[in-house]
């Protein structure tokens, strides 16, 4: 329960940061996607359900505030949360490579789906351009921002549920 409350608060925080401060630190016309990092990290750290929950919540924020049609972002974020939740089996506390990789893949997936839903359907076919100017730069930037956010989430997780840690620590010994 605590975890879900903290995820909710974090989503709101990330969303507010995303829409206000991040445009100021744009590089090459793109900004990192914190909501996606949060969703991916929630899925990766806590499993499919938590991932989907965060995804749906982030999607609601994004869709209700900025999108003309409600539902697309909710589904994409939920899907990202779910897929990262499947990678939960690989979760290991000290490991940073796997979550970064999963964030990168999630960001690519998110943007490709987003492109498909919003741009492809309107006949914008120049996928190569969008790939090289938005999708790839955003993925790189998101991974960099994601590293710090992920570290913060790990730290926060230790504070919120130290008991979890004991169970999780057992994990690797089971193998």
């Amino acid at each position: 329960m605590k975890r879900y409350i903290s995820l909710t608060i974090l989503s709101v925080l990330c969303f507010v940061l995303q829409t206000t401060l991040l445009p100021y630190i744009q590089l090459a016309h793109v900004m990192p996607n914190l909501l996606l990092v949060l969703t991916a990290a929630a899925g990766f750290m806590y499993g499919r359900k938590a991932g989907m929950y965060t995804g749906v919540f982030c999607g609601i924020l994004a869709d209700f505030m900025y999108s003309r049609v409600i539902g697309i972002a909710i589904f994409i974020y939920a899907l990202v949360g779910y897929i990262n939740g499947m990678a939960n089996k690989l979760y290991y506390k000290e490991d940073y490579m796997t979550p970064m990789l999963s964030i990168a893949v999630s960001d690519l997936l998110y943007n490709i789906l987003y492109y498909g839903c919003h741009f492809l359907l309107r006949g914008r076919l120049n996928l190569g351009y969008y790939f090289s100017h938005i999708i790839i730069p955003e993925a790189i930037y998101t991974v960099i921002a994601g590293f710090f956010l992920y570290r913060f989430l790990r730290w926060l997780d230790d504070r919120i549920s130290p008991r979890e840690e004991l169970i999780l620590k057992k994990g690797p010994n089971d193998i």
């Binding site: 969303f15 505030m65 938005i134």
Partner: peptide, 12 residues
Amino acid sequence: SSDNDNWYNTFI
């Protein structure tokens, strides 16, 4: 505030 992703250009 501005849009939350890099695809559109809407602001509040």
